[in-house]
Every structure is written in structure tokens, then in C-alpha cells.
Amino acid sequence: MNKEIIKIEDLKREFTMGNETVHALKGISFNIKEGEFVTIMGSSGSGKSTLLNILGCLDKPTSGTYEIDGVNMKDLSRNELATIRNEKIGFIFQSYNLLPRTSAIENVELPLLYNSKISTEERRKRAINALEMVGLGDRLHHTPSQLSGGQQQRVAIARSLVNNPVMILADEATGNLDTRTSYEIMALFQDLNKQGITITFVTHEPDIAAFSKRTIVLKDGSIIKDYKNHTVLSATEQLAGLPQEEHSL
């Protein structure tokens, strides 16, 4: 359980816009071990999403190395990266990125459509299961426009779970949820983490960060803090402590 699943060194990401260069990440190094639950915090524009996109193999660093499960990302072909995204990573986008006019269940099924090893029945079963896990068992056939912001976010979460990933990368996955629902999602993540899934979680909220084992804080594209949480809260217990009337589902 102590293998390093993510190993980045001096990672830089620059965006050139005309003659101006934005240094979104200015040389970042850290490792994440298999089974860790890491929160990435930092103010808006500090480079959290940029970092997570690279970790999710959606973007490439300008310089520096990124080793995923012992393999340098640079050595992987586009197709190999696609397979990693498809089978190993569950990614939750800050802006959900659901297919419009497509039902929740079909949105959740999407990653499995690109995995020919999974049968139609299996696909359906897993999609329903994932949606039930995020409390949307009664919204299977709603399209994004027929769902609330929080519900859309939960569909995006379900989609990231459906391929049984070894690593979940969540970009403000609870940003649109009320306290109770976000605790429920955190409880789900803690549960998945207990099963051995590595979770990297971007958030603004310190009380959400308290559910993780480790926190990395970014500022202007650099790491300013990287510390272990000694008192990890249990989301299930916190949930029990919430007043009853705040019924969200």
C-alpha cells in the first residue's frame, strides 16, 4: 500500500497568450502514495485546476516530470493515456462537463462505452449503482437541464466512480452542495478511500479538508504548505451530528 502512484518533480505549466506568458504552475514537486486521501487547497487562480488536469492526464506540463504508477507520462502514447483515463482515473470537473440533452444514466455510462470489455447489462448496472451511491437513484432519466446544480454535480461524481477507478481526482466536487450533501459525498469518498482508492481532492473549504489525511496548499503556482492531518474527521460521524431538519435528499 506504499507504492507511489503519483510522482511529480519540478512541474511547470505556462500558458502563452500572445506575447504574455502566464505561469500557472511554477515548479511543483510532491508524491502521492497509493491509498492516500489528499486535499489541494489554495485561493482562486492559484493553479489547482491546472495541476489536477495534468494529474488526470488531460493536459501536459510545459516542463518537469510526472510519473503515474511508475511510468513517465511523456513515454505514453495518446492511446495509452486514453486507456489510463478510461480505466484507472475518475475525474470530476469543476464545471461538471455533462453531455447536454442526455439522461443522467447515459452520462454516467459514457466512460464504459469506451471500454469494450464491459457488456451492455454490466454498464447499465454499474451506472445505476453509481447514481444510487450519490443519492440520485430516482433521477436516472433526467437530463442535465432537468437537474439542479448540485444534482448535476453528483451525476459528474457518479460518472467518475462508474469505471471503478484506482484514483479519483475531484475538482471542487462539493462546491455546489449544501453541508449535508457534501458530507454525504465526503463519507462516500472516505469509504472508497478505505477500500484502497487514492483520492485527490481540490477544495476551498477547510472543513472539507479536515476529512482528508493530507493537505497541500498552493499559492500563485507554488506549494506553500504540505502537511498531514493528525485528526482526520469521519464524515459519517459528522453527518450524524448535523441537525435532523436539514434534510437534503
Partner: peptide
Amino acid sequence: TKEIGLRMAVGGKGSD
């Protein structure tokens, strides 16, 4: 293009 981006993000290969 956005749709294509999403399909690739969830594991669709260029050829798919």
C-alpha cells in the same frame, strides 16, 4: 469540440 473533449477525457481514443 467540447463534446469531443469530454469523450476523450473519459477515455475515448482519437480513433474512437
